[in-house]
Nucleic acid binder design. Structure first.
Lengths: 345, 345
DNA sequence: CTGTTAGCGCGTTCAA
DNA sequence: TTGAACGCGCTAACAG
C-alpha cells in the first residue's frame, strides 16, 4: 500500500538539521501518524505490540515532539507562566524552585517573567506571556493594573496570586496577610516590653504594607511616635546600614523593625561597627528567615514565611485545577507565618 | 464585498474565552490577515494609514498574538532554554536574572530547567525543552551525557555552556577555569605563609574540581597532606559546621578552604561557637563572594566570580548570534575571577 | 484498537 | 503596498 505522506520540511532553520516529525516516525514504524501520537500520549489506547514498534521508531529517528504544534492543535501548552518581582532574592527563588519542582513531575514547564516591582512591566509581561498560551498564570501580589486584571479574567485561564491574601482574588490566592504580620509583630514586641520603635523598609509594596500595619497597631496601643526610614528597592546591606545611621541622628530606639532580613543584616552590621550591643542596647527584627546570616546571628529575631511552601502549594493547587474541569469558584489559602524570637535562644 | 473568513474556533479551552485571532482583527480593521501580521511585525512594509487601522483593531479586540502558531509557522520560537543545577542559590539566580534581562530587551523569553546537578535529569530536561523548539539553549557546565551532546549537535541550534571553560565546547562557552581557581588560591595561600590546609567541599562537580586542583597545586609545592571533607549537595551552614567539627577530630589546620561561601559561613559559625579566633587561629576561604554574611564577616576571604556577568555576556553572545547567520565557529569567553582577601582589610 | 479528515493560528511565498 | 494560497507539525473527532 502506497502512503502519500509528505516527506519532510525543507529545513527547520537556516542551518538547522531538518527536524524529525511524527510523520517520519510513523513511516519508520509502519503505522499512521495518529497512532504514534497516541502511543506517546495515551499508551493505554494502543496495543502493546504497536507501542513497541512506535517507541523503537522514536528512538531510531531521535524524534522530539514539537510542542508548538502540539499546543496549537490541542489548545494545551503545558506551560505555566510565573511573574515575580525578582529571582535574585532567595525568598522568591525558593518559591520558584518549589513551584517548578511541583509542576515538572506532571510535565509542565515554567515560563518566568521578572517585573522588578513595576506594575507597568507586569502589564507588558502578562501580555507577552499570554502569547505563549500558558495553561495557567501565577502572579506575585494582588495589586495589578486594570488592563492586567481585565486580560486575565477574559482569557479565563487559572490565575494564582501568591505572596499575599485578598478577599476578592482574580481566581486563587496563596499567601499570607501582610497586615496581620505587621499587627502581630507589633503586639509581640509590645508584650516583650519595648518602647521606642524604629522602622526601616525598602519601598516594596508588600514590605510597606507590613510596616504601615505595624505602626497602626502601635498607634492603637498609644504609641504614635515611630520613626520610619524608607529606601529604594532592592534591599541591600548598605541600605540597612544607612537606614540605621540616619535614624540614630535624630532618635534612640530600643528596637528596629526591618522589612527584610537583608536590611536587618545591614542594621546589625552598622550596630556592630558602632559598638552597640544587640539585643541588649538595640534589638533587631527582620523578615523572611532565609538569609544565612540571620541564622548565624543569634540575636536577630525575624518573621518566618514559607517561600518554598508557597511554591509547593501553588503547584498542587494548579495540578488539581487541571484535573477538575469546573473552576469550583475562587479559592484562598493562607500559608501563615511565624515570629521567630532568637533573643531567648 | 463578502469575506469568507472563518468566524472563530469553537473555544480555546473548555471554559476559556474564545481567543481572538488575527482573522478577527483583520475583519475589524477591514484588511487581510496577512496585513495585520505585517503591521505588527514589520510596520515599515505597511502604509501608515493601514497601520493605524490595524492597531486600533488590535486594541479594540484585545488581540494577543499566538506565539505557538507563530513559532510553528516561522520556525522561530523566540524562546531560549536554560538548564541550571538550581536557582535557589544566589549565584545562579544572579546569572539567570542577568540573562533574562538581557534577552528580554530583544523580546526573547526564557524557559528554565532545574537539573539538581544530575546528568540524567539534565538529559531528560534537554529533550523536554527541545520540544519547545527554543532558538538557543544554555547549559551550566561542560560535562554532559553523550545523548545530550548528540541531540544538541544534531539540532544545530546555538548552545552556550556557562560557568566553566573547555577546549572543545559543543558550540560556545562562557565562564572561567575551575582548575585555575584552585591553582591560584593555592599559590595565594602558600605565599601568605599557611602550612596546614584543610578542604571542605560539597560534591558538586565543579566545586570538586576546584578543590582537586587546589590540592594538586599544594602537592606540587611539596605539601601532600591535605585533609578533605566532602558533603552531599546542596551546601548548607550545617554542612560547614559538621565539616569543621569532623576535621578537627583528627587534625589542626591553620586554614580551611571551602567550595562555597555557604559552607564557609558554617565553618565560621562552628569556629565561633568553639571560641576559635578567625583568622588568627584559623583562616577561612570561601567561593562565590555573594552571601551577605561573607560581606558581613571581615575575616572571610573568598573568590569572586561574576554570576551576573556570565548571564549578561551570555545574553549578548546569543543576541549577536541571532543576528549573524553563520555560526562563526566555536567561541570561548573567559570571564575570570578575583581572589578577595579580607584579612588585610 | 487504528486510520482518516480537518483544522489549530500564523508566516512564507508569490502574485497582483 | 496588499492579498491568496499553502503548509508548519500536531491532535480532536469521528469512522472503521
Amino acid at each position: 500500500m502506497v502512503r502519500k505522506l509528505k516527506s519532510r520540511s525543507p529545513d527547520a532553520r537556516a542551518s538547522g538539521a531538518p527536524s524529525v516529525t511524527l510523520i517520519d516516525v510513523a513511516r519508520v514504524a509502519g503505522v499512521a501518524p495518529m497512532t504514534v501520537s497516541r502511543a506517546l500520549h495515551r499508551p493505554e489506547l494502543v496495543r502493546e505490540e504497536t507501542q513497541k514498534k512506535v517507541l523503537a521508531a522514536v528512538r531510531a529517528t531521535g524524534y522530539v515532539p514539537n510542542m508548538l504544534a502540539g499546543g496549537l492543535a490541542s489548545s494545551r501548552s503545558r506551560l505555566v507562566a510565573v511573574l515575580l518581582p525578582t529571582i535574585a532574592s532567595s525568598i522568591f527563588a525558593e518559591t520558584v524552585q518549589a513551584l517548578m519542582d511541583g509542576l515538572s513531575v506532571a510535565n509542565y514547564q515554567t515560563l518566568i517573567g521578572l517585573t522588578g516591582y513595576s506594575a507597568s512591566r507586569e502589564e507588558a509581561l502578562v501580555e507577552a506571556l499570554l502569547g505563549r498560551r500558558p495553561d495557567a498564570i501565577v502572579l506575585a501580589g494582588t495589586d495589578h493594573t486594570n488592563t492586567t486584571i481585565d486580560r486575565l479574567t477574559r482569557t479565563g485561564i487559572p490565575v494564582v496570586e501568591i505572596w499575599d491574601l485578598t478577599e476578592k482574588p482574580i481566581d486563587m490566592v496563596i499567601g499570607f496577610s501582610h497586615e496581620q504580620v505587621g499587627r502581630e509583630v507589633a503586639r509581640h514586641l509590645l508584650q516583650k516590653g519595648y518602647h521606642r520603635f524604629g522602622v526601616i523598609s525598602v519601598n516594596d509594596p508588600r514590605g510597606l504594607r507590613r510596616c504601615e500595619s505595624f505602626r497602626a497597631e502601635l498607634a492603637r496601643h498609644g504609641i504614635s511616635e515611630c520613626p520610619f526610614e524608607t529606601l529604594p528597592a532592592p534591599a541591600t546591606l548598605e541600605g540597612g546600614r544607612r537606614g540605621l545611621s540616619h535614624m540614630l541622628e535624630y532618635t534612640t530606639p530600643d528596637i528596629i523593625v526591618c522589612s527584610s532580613d537583608t536590611l536587618a543584616e545591614g542594621v546589625l552590621m552598622e550596630a556592630a561597627s558602632r559598638g552597640i550591643q544587640v539585643p541588649t542596647d538595640l534589638a533587631v527584627m527582620g523578615f523572611g528567615d532565609l538569609s544565612m546570616a540571620a541564622q548565624l546571628h543569634p540575636a536577630l529575631s525575624t518573621v518566618k514565611v514559607g517561600g518554598a511552601d508557597i511554591g509547593k502549594r501553588t503547584a498542587e493547587a494548579l495540578l488539581e485545577r487541571f484535573e477538575t474541569a469546573p473552576p469550583a469558584g475562587p479559592r484562598c489559602i493562607d500559608t501563615g507565618f511565624a515570629i521567630i524570637d532568637r533573643e531567648s535562644a
